[in-house]
């Protein structure tokens, strides 16, 4: 749509601006303040320059958390995106069963994060959980509180359980927007199932897929509550992701300076990746016109 040039539109944006400035800019400035200053208490601050950033960039602990975080996000995307597409392709197209599937699939998305953690914590326990019991019964040596691999597997399966539906719902919406004529044309051309997917469905899903990847990347990169409830970041540090580490540092140990420097770098990483996504997305919007 052609938009009218009108700078008075700013007036309509002002409420949002004020609200978000209060709830985002002021706190962010506090973080910036801590990141560059040091204190011995009593609200006396003195300039520390880039000291904290220097410390954090060379910290083994941060590297470890960042590495685990990147690996977690990569694994999550690699599983959830193909699985989500696959599920969307198999969903009923319309009628009662379509609504039925939609509602059931959206269910995990509406469960508070810590309850998701609790569900899986219980589900995986060897003494009282269905999953833990079944695996033990099958002779698998499974214990997510002691074994790092089991802990990782639990956290990943939990996230797949929690969020694959999101990808599937998005792809489903994309598939619904394909006119029936496209499929008929493909049928006349005797296109294979794969060809239909590759040349009709996939291009049509491109837009929603990008949003799905963006949302999943962002949310998995700042995941906190679910793994915290299930494993508490352990065993050892094996499932300590960036947010868990950050909260430990800021609220647990009250190391404000390093935590603030850590926060800023963390935020910048997310911002950078998201900016790339956003640019690609808006360019696609333009091409579509």
């Amino acid at each position: 749509m052609e938009k009218t040039q009108n700078n008075r539109a700013w007036l309509l944006v002002i409420p949002v601006l004020v609200l978000v400035a209060f709830s985002a800019v002021i706190p962010l400035m506090t973080v910036v303040n801590y990141a560059f200053n040091d204190t011995f208490g009593n609200n006396d601050f003195f300039w520390a320059g880039l000291e904290w950033f220097d410390e954090m960039i060379h910290s083994e602990r941060l590297h470890g958390a960042l590495g685990r975080q990147a690996m977690f996000s990569a694994i999550i995307l690699a599983i959830e995106v193909p699985l989500g597409i696959f599920v969307a392709l198999n969903m009923p197209k319309k009628g009662f069963w379509a609504s039925f599937c939609l509602v059931l699939m959206a269910l995990p998305l509406l469960i508070p994060f810590n309850v998701v953690g609790t569900i899986w914590q219980i589900f995986g326990r060897v003494d009282i959980g269905l999953l833990g019991r079944t695996l033990a019964g099958l002779g698998v040596d499974y214990n997510y509180t002691n074994d790092p691999i089991d802990a990782w597997a639990t956290v990943i399966v939990m996230d797949v359980w929690h969020w694959t539906s999101l990808v599937a719902l998005l792809c489903y919406a994309g598939l619904q927007s394909i006119p029936q004529a496209y499929y008929q044309a493909a049928k006349i051309d005797q296109a294979s199932r794969w060809a239909v997917f590759r040349y009709i469905e996939l291009p049509k899903m491109q837009g929603v897929l990008l949003i799905a990847v963006l949302l999943r990347f962002m949310d998995s990169f700042m995941i906190y509550t679910e793994p915290f409830v299930v494993t508490g970041g352990g065993p050892g540090n094996s499932t300590t992701f960036l947010s868990i580490d950050l909260v430990k540092m800021a609220v647990g140990q009250f190391d404000l300076g390093p935590a603030a420097a850590f926060s800023l770098m963390y935020f910048l990483v997310i911002l950078l990746v998201s900016w790339v996504f956003y640019t690609v997305m808006t360019n696609m919007d333009k091409e579509a016109k």
């Binding site: 002021i26 506090t30 962002m218 950050l246």
Partner: peptide, 21 residues
């Protein structure tokens, strides 16, 4: 885009400043 970045801000980053604010 600036609005979008707020959707991306990790809540963990904001927990302590919010508390103080």
């Amino acid at each position: 885009f600036w609005l979008l970045t707020n959707r991306m801000a990790p809540p963990a980053v904001f927990a302590l400043p919010f508390f103080q604010l």
